[in-house]
């Protein structure tokens, strides 16, 4: 599964895309250097975790992949596209192939689950339908089957704000899935959830990775979740990659290197049961 062969097949929907960062640096307007010269390649269909403390740059890294944060220098490539430098319609088109879920779920709380999920179809809408906000029969079909996949179909008319945290994250996953994406980004998807729900959502991501064959890049700050659900782990500290290797083999010393301090009990979520 090398970069080149996957990139050619990349145009077809629902096939995994590779991600490549080449010497990427991000400096925010206030002068903070969030990423310093990061280069890495993630193969199509891989499930990779990015581990680091808050402020280590992992949120910036994940947002550089879909262009939510513009890079200061270097290039970001996803599938056949170079994200860095794109803007406007072209950037939205690429983003349509990249699903993303967030720590805070980021649903419109006063709006029902159905319309929140249809947001995932926006990038596919034609000019007129986009203007009127009317989904096609195919859009409806895709959104509903995504809700079905995460087991939220019976809540389709419920206002998103009245759901529990775990349910909201499932709707957010359905929203991302209804894009029929080639890459799934997850920014601290379980940090706002209680342990059992956190494990359920991580399993969901794992299942998406294997069943839908998607590249999954997930930010985590907890060491045991990274070890348990992902095979490869990237450690970030102060905007630099300090670890890149198999997650299962990462030692306590490796984690202390990533965190820049000794391991504390709150660095682990605890077991599934």
């Amino acid at each position: 599964m090398t970069l080149d062969t996957r990139a050619e097949a990349g145009a077809a929907p629902a096939s995994a895309w590779p991600i490549r960062l080449d010497g990427v640096s991000v400096t925010y307007p206030n002068g903070t250097a969030a990423l310093r010269d990061v280069s890495l390649t993630i193969d199509a269909g891989e499930m990779v975790s990015v581990v680091g403390l808050s402020g280590s740059g992992k949120s910036t890294l994940i947002r550089a992949v879909n262009g939510l944060v513009p890079v200061t220098s270097g290039t970001v490539t996803v599938g056949p596209y170079t994200v860095s430098g794109l803007s406007g319609r072209r950037l939205r088109q690429v983003r349509g192939h990249i699903g993303m879920i967030f720590q805070g779920f980021n649903l419109a709380t006063r709006i029902d689950v159905y319309r929140n999920t249809l947001v995932g179809r926006f990038a596919q809408a034609g000019a007129l339908r986009g203007l009127l906000g009317v989904p096609t029969a195919h859009d409806r079909e895709v959104a509903l089957s995504a809700l079905h996949t995460v087991g939220m179909l019976d809540k389709v008319w419920t206002r998103a704000g009245s759901l529990s945290g775990g349910q909201q994250q499932r709707v957010a996953i359905a929203r991302a899935l209804s894009q029929e994406p080639s890459i799934m980004l997850a920014d601290e998807p379980v940090a706002s959830l209680d342990p059992p729900t956190a494990h359920a959502v991580m399993s969901e991501l794992e299942r998406i990775n294997t069943e839908r064959y998607l590249t999954v890049l997930v930010n985590l700050h907890l060491m045991d979740l990274a070890r348990q659900y992902t095979r490869r782990m990237i450690g970030l500290r102060a905007g630099e990659v300090v670890y890149d290797g198999p997650a299962a083999e990462a030692t306590e010393a490796d984690f202390e290197q990533i965190y820049g301090r000794r391991i504390r009990p709150q660095d682990r979520l605890g077991d599934r049961t």
Partner: peptide
């Protein structure tokens, strides 16, 4: 965790033609 398992079996069973539940009045 049972909901995940449940969801998984449902996915494989009925992918085509998921019906929209009736909208509440």
């Amino acid at each position: 965790m049972s909901s995940t398992v449940e969801a998984r079996t449902r996915t494989t069973a009925t992918r085509p033609g998921v019906a929209l539940p009736p909208r509440p009045s």
